[in-house]
């Protein structure tokens, strides 16, 4: 979401609105449209961008009536299916998900304010493809996959391969993100997402870091780790090498610091009104370290509060 650098603002212009009830209907609407049709889920990015004149469209296709986009189901062997139109409040209102995917809750509970969370969706956050999106690093860390339906059938794509540039992604004309699939989590695993913002809520991430770790049964060493980063490159980053460094290593200040340094080395942030690049680079190290330690503590069964728990909602 880019606001602020606005030369010419236009209020919302007229457009066609469709709310299909089948995926086929939705795909047909999108594929047969030549006017830059836009998909609407929660609308917390789309409506703002239309109002600000960053986007224009003659057709908006609302996917909230598609059953596939409203699924929210968890199965211990299959993992989590998270429909693209499921709003954040449904996610953090689900006790099983809170317990099983705490890292996802960390992100879902800090997007915008509480009113925004009533509408905003994780799928929309991904499709908006902002480098600073809060849910993408933790989706990467959880090894989530995108289920995409289109005119030629469905395909699955890892989240880390989804975004291609600020505001851009791999979705082709006529394609819809139906759902995200998060694999089931191992025993002795934990995850944590955190971001740095100058205030204590409502800001866009200056830097975000999400980590998923699996520890051995004693909780002493890493079996595997995955790290995702936000707001330090044109797209969210998968810090693959940083996570791989931890494989088989003992949980220690030294091993985690080394992973954080590796994560920092791939960050290539810019300077803007939200922070200078050098400071962002520094924060990557700090946040990666903290995200890893938070994930470790959760893997060990310790309580690390999410934003909902911290702010007493």
């Amino acid at each position: 979401m880019v606001i602020g650098d606005i030369e010419r603002k236009l209020r919302l212009q007229n457009f066609e609105y469709s709310a299909p009830v089948t995926v086929k209907e939705a795909i047909d609407l999108l594929a047969g449209d030549n006017c830059g049709a836009r998909i609407l889920a929660g609308g917390t990015d789309l409506i703002v961008q239309l109002r600000q004149g960053h986007l224009s469209t003659d057709r908006v296709v609302d996917i909230k009536r598609l059953p596939d986009c409203n699924k929210l189901s968890y199965d211990p062997s299959e993992g989590l299916i998270l429909g693209a139109a499921v709003p954040c409040h449904r996610i953090y209102g689900d006790e099983t998900i809170v317990k099983t995917y705490p890292g996802l809750i960390d992100a879902a509970a800090i997007i915008g304010g509480i009113q925004i969370q009533g509408r905003a969706t994780v799928g929309g956050n991904l499709c908006n493809s902002s480098p600073s999106a809060d849910t993408i690093p933790i989706l990467i860390a959880y090894r989530a996959e995108c289920e995409i339906a289109g005119p030629t059938g469905t395909r699955k794509v890892p989240v880390e391969d989804f975004c291609t540039a600020p505001g851009k992604n791999i979705l082709q004309k006529g394609e819809i993100l139906l759902a995200l699939h998060l694999p089931s989590v191992a025993k002795s695993s934990g995850a944590h997402y955190l971001r740095f913002i100058p205030r204590f809520e409502m800001d866009i991430a200056v830097v975000g870091a999400g980590a998923y770790v699996e520890l051995d049964e004693e909780g002493r060493s890493f079996k595997k780790a995955r790290i995702g980063l936000a707001a330090v490159a044109p797209t969210p980053l998968f810090a693959r090498e940083a996570g791989d460094l931890l494989q088989g290593k003992e949980v220690s200040e030294a091993s985690i610091d080394a992973a954080a340094l590796a994560a920092q080395s791939i960050a290539r942030p810019i300077s803007d009104m939200r922070a200078p690049a050098e400071y962002r680079k520094h924060l990557v190290k700090v946040l990666t370290k903290r995200a890893l330690w938070g994930a470790v503590r959760r893997a060990r069964g310790e309580f690390v509060p999410n934003a909902v728990q911290e702010n007493g909602r």
Binding site: G4, E201, R274
Partner: peptide, 13 residues
Amino acid sequence: ASFLDYRMPTCLD
């Protein structure tokens, strides 16, 4: 030039 990036304190601040 928006309340998103002109950061006035919120309740949590």
